[in-house]
Simulated scan of single mutants.
Amino acid sequence: MRVVVEADGGSRGNPGPAAYGAVVLDSEGPAAQVLAQRAERIGHATNNVAEYRGLIAGLEAAKEIGARHVAVRMDSKLVVEQMSGRWKVKHADMRELASQAAAVSRVFDAVSYTWVPREQNKRADALLNTVLDGAVLDIGKRIDEAPRQRQAPQQQAVQQTLEAVAAQPAASWEPPKSSSTRLILVRHGETEASRVFRQCGRSDLPLTATGMSQARAVARRIGSRDAVAQVYSSPLLRTMQTATAVADALGLPVRTDERLIEMDFGEWEGLTGQEIQARDPELRDQWLSDPTTTAPGGESFAQVAARVGAFVDEVVEKHPGENIVLVSHVTPIKLTLKSALGTGWELLTRLFLDVASLSVVEFAASGRSSVRLVNDISHWQR
């Protein structure tokens, strides 16, 4: 489930009497339906503390209704930039709250943060001012504790959400049925960078001679499988060379999509893990433990997960019951496996993917998924 969280916080005096408001919506825009709301007076605090409390409350509400992808919209530049990893969190109070928000974020497949003008965050702003005024809600109570007649629209929306969840198929040991989309995930063949485990994100390197041989082996392996309807690829050279070998063997064209591209490692491009650790030990540790932390000048795992997840959703919707080849890189493939398994972010550091490896997952439109194969290199391993 994809949701939008609008959150805000404020104090009268900064610091002074403070409150937060948060709204979970099914989409953006004025026609969006409210799925959940939170608002609470939090005593004497600063604007920034209240804003972080609003974010945490909104993320918790999204978690409670089963959201997997969350788009956060706030008019706090500080919170958006800090949670996106572009600004450091210097104040002790902010570090604790940012850590709490990051901890909640890890339950989702992806969380993105967008700054919006205050006039586009009116719902959350109205909630916090309502509890500060004390005109509608009892001071100190959450909005979901307000009198029944004041919550009718919210309760109806939440009830509809619960009914939709209840209508989904129950968990089962059986794999998804034939209407599921089977994704054959292919990592590109060997490059000079992959041979020595250097971070190669946006650098457009070609395959080595060994890498080309691996690509042809992948093509033979996939060509012996069930019929494939389409081959999609990252537009970088190493993936295109691999995808072209596969597509030629299948008699299909290659369709490229930027969302399948590798993570942008920024200033860490071309470095090994050991070199990055020596250069930026604290930042690398935070990057590996917090999915919202970006590589310097690059991307975070959460940002990559958002774009890859959107692409996979589109493919599943467009190709029900079909076999689809996706030729990509380590990070997008790991994130797709993470989504199919429903695991936490720790999978990214615990799963190894070889070059020219095959992994297979299935996604159904109902939301069910299964993993059928991971990191198979039997087609080229000597």
Results as ranks from 00 to 15, higher is better:
Glu6Asp: 04
Asp8Pro: 02
Asn14Asp: 12
Pro15Trp: 04
Ala22Gln: 01
Val24Met: 03
Pro30Arg: 15
Glu40His: 10
Arg41Thr: 05
Arg41Asn: 08
Arg41Ala: 13
Gly43Lys: 06
His44Trp: 11
Asn47Gln: 09
Tyr52Arg: 07
Gly58Glu: 02
Leu59Tyr: 02
Glu60Met: 05
Lys63Glu: 15
Ala67Ser: 03
Val80His: 03
Glu81Asp: 14
Glu81Pro: 10
Arg86Cys: 03
Lys88Ser: 11
Met94Asp: 12
Glu96Asn: 12
Leu97Asn: 02
Ser99Thr: 07
Ala103Trp: 01
Phe108Gly: 09
Ser112Asp: 05
Pro117Arg: 00
Lys122Glu: 13
Asp125Met: 07
Ile139Cys: 09
Lys141Cys: 14
Gln154Ser: 13
Val158Tyr: 12
Glu163Pro: 04
Ala170Glu: 15
Ala170Tyr: 08
Pro175Gly: 05
Pro175Leu: 01
Ser179Phe: 02
Thr181Cys: 15
Arg182Val: 12
Thr191Leu: 10
Leu205Asn: 08
Ala215Pro: 10
Arg221Pro: 00
Ser224Ala: 14
Val228Pro: 00
Arg238Ala: 03
Met240Arg: 14
Thr242Arg: 05
Val246Phe: 04
Thr256Arg: 07
Thr256Gly: 03
Thr256Glu: 09
Glu258Trp: 05
Leu260Cys: 10
Glu262Ala: 13
Asp264Cys: 14
Asp264Ala: 14
Phe265Ser: 11
Glu267Ser: 15
Glu267Leu: 15
Gly270His: 07
Gly270Pro: 09
Glu275Ile: 00
Glu275Leu: 09
Ile276His: 09
Ile276Val: 13
Ile276Arg: 11
Trp287His: 12
Leu288Arg: 15
Asp290Phe: 00
Thr292Arg: 14
Thr294Pro: 01
Arg307Phe: 04
Asp313Ser: 12
Gly321Asp: 07
Val325Cys: 07
Val325Asn: 08
His329Val: 02
Thr331Cys: 14
Lys334Met: 06
Leu337Arg: 06
Leu337Gln: 11
Lys338Ile: 04
Ser339Ile: 00
Glu346Arg: 13
Leu348Pro: 01
Leu353His: 01
Leu353Cys: 08
Ser357Pro: 00
Ser357Val: 01
Ser359Cys: 08
Val361Cys: 09
Phe363Tyr: 11
Ala365Asp: 09
Gly367Cys: 03
Ser370Asn: 11
Ser378Lys: 09
